[in-house]
Nucleic acid binder design. Sequence first.
DNA 1: CTTGACTCCGTACCTAGCTACGGACACTAG
DNA 2: CTAGTGTCCGTAGCTAGGTACGGAGTCAAG
Lengths: 138, 138
Amino acid sequence: MRIGEVAEKAGVGVETIRFYERKGLIEQPRKPADGGYRSYSSETVNRVRFVREAQCLGFSLNEIEELLTLRADPETDCADVRERAQAKLDEVKNKIARLAGIQSALENLIQECRGDGPASSCCPILDALDTEDKESMT
Amino acid sequence: MRIGEVAEKAGVGVETIRFYERKGLIEQPRKPADGGYRSYSSETVNRVRFVREAQCLGFSLNEIEELLTLRADPETDCADVRERAQAKLDEVKNKIARLAGIQSALENLIQECRGDGPASSCCPILDALDTEDKESMT
DNA sequence: CTTGACTCCGTACCTAGCTACGGACACTAG
DNA sequence: CTAGTGTCCGTAGCTAGGTACGGAGTCAAG
């Protein structure tokens, strides 16, 4: 599969694939044999899709690389992998919990704001977060 | 309260406060009366903290501005606020659901990888996401 | 009335994550 | 053989979100 096809299937531009390749996020398929063109497996399409998905969820490319290496190397010791996975899991759980805070603040806002009157007194987003937040910054 | 105090209490740099001010994320407190120094209320500290918190959760500054304006204007009609809040709520729920996907993939990984043997065959992160993901990109 | 801490402002610079440009090959169809 | 399309590569440019710099003004303490 050539670069254009991968890009299309993954829903990104060709340049993005080249960019990810330089970043080491996807396989380096230098194939001077075939006219010098890159040749990818369908695996790469999945990888690229995973990258985009993870980005939407707030992971940086560096973090995504970590996520990806969790499954990568057959040589790697399982204990090491577990450790990294556990750390990522903690991050993810933390993120979910904090989003849940925002979620309930928004739900409050929507419930209390029944659609009549002015909005001023019924929008406790900041308040809701303030109280949880006060001394909890890292 | 002057800019340095706000910055310290919110745990950011002075330049960041000025940057947020330019972006319209916090009040514009031009006070030529008091020697030309900015003067902030403690409200601003909360706002800045909220901005940082929301950023960690994957919101852009533009999105955060939207979140913040949900509680802002006493003139705004409640119905409009509700609409925006509902849209944000949908985004948030969606994010949580997708993070939950990653969470369970990581939990699987950790469970299946009992700490012995090689890591190659027990790391279904990509697989777990692939199956959910196949045709669901926006 | 000098010193030091703080602030002012504009501008420049930085990282992350792309995105576009441009000239040179390759490969296919006509 | 000539287009046309796709690819190669390096480099430049772009947006977001800061971060740093430098020269000048403010102000309280000594």
